[in-house]
């Protein structure tokens, strides 16, 4: 089984984030990065499926040069090779554009299964995987908690709301977005780290993938500004007898605070 895992590198969870000077993104100079959490679980699931059914696991990752650290980590854990799309502008907030680039890279390979995390820990759209599936014409399932491949099909357990789950069987090739916690992520080993040095990382740029440059430069979603939420506080003293005060309070809770 030929499996692709879409892997994004994001700031570590406890990073102290600062907005950059232009308010366009975070200041990355003091930040360390890691594999996006749900992508990491996706990688583990891909490795387990390979161990069970044979085949290969290919890491597909996009981002600036630093992304290679995440790729090497995935190769050290047992992925067979990687496709690295070198693109520093991927912090584009438009999941459609990101998905188009990823789909173009995936299309050349005919994967049986494409996995990604449920969502990225930085932008958190939760859309990239699904759009990739649409672009490739693959069946897809989201928020996957369990996988079982049998006879050219894959049965998955999906997480719904309020502790409910759904079992769905879909044909291969398929795209799954993986929920964190469905397995236990392995550690790399020293042998794995040493073996990873010899594994292929095929580096491409979006232009190599036959994409229309103009299309990539006109996103439907643009990130205009990021900022730390501004804390505001306003105190209103309600006056009158208790009955009047209660009336005013209820009115404010209903119409201003909108909590009742």
């Amino acid at each position: 089984m030929k499996i692709a895992i879409l892997l994004k590198q994001v700031p570590v969870k406890d990073a102290q984030l600062k907005v950059n000077g232009g308010g366009t993104w975070i200041d990355e100079s003091d930040v360390t990065f890691e594999i996006n959490e749900s992508d990491h679980y996706g990688l583990e699931e891909a490795l387990r499926l390979k161990e069970k059914h044979g085949g290969e696991v290919v890491v597909v990752s996009m981002g600036p040069e630093r992304t290679k650290e995440a790729i090497k980590q995935a190769l050290a854990k047992g992925a067979d090779r990687a496709i690295y799309i070198n693109d520093d502008s991927v912090r584009s907030a438009d999941p459609v554009i990101n998905a188009k680039i990823l789909a173009a890279a995936l299309k050349q390979e005919n994967f049986d299964l494409v996995l990604s995390g449920l969502q990225s820990d930085d932008l958190g759209h939760g859309q990239t995987g699904v759009i990739v599936a649409e672009l490739l014409g693959m069946a897809h399932a989201t928020i996957v908690m369990e996988t079982d491949v049998k006879d050219g099909k894959i049965k998955v357990k999906r997480e719904l709301e309020s502790g409910w789950f759904q079992y769905v069987e879909i044909p291969l090739p398929a795209m799954l977005t993986i929920q964190s916690g469905l397995n236990q992520i392995r550690y790399a080993t020293i042998k794995g780290i040493m073996a990873a040095k010899k594994k292929e990382i095929k580096e491409v740029i979006p232009a190599d993938l036959g994409l229309d440059a103009a299309e990539l430069q006109s996103p439907g979603v643009k990130l205009h500004k990021i900022y730390v939420p501004v804390k505001t506080k306003e105190t209103v003293i309600l006056e009158g007898d208790p009955k009047e005060i209660v009336g005013q309070l209820v009115e404010k809770l209903k119409n201003e605070a909108k909590i009742i």
Binding site: A76, Y187, A188, I190, I193
Partner: peptide, 14 residues
């Protein structure tokens, strides 16, 4: 080297 950092980080994580 990359390899030295990766080994360190792996042990650190564990």
């Amino acid at each position: 080297t990359d390899e030295e950092r990766q080994v360190r980080d792996m042990v650190r994580e564990f």
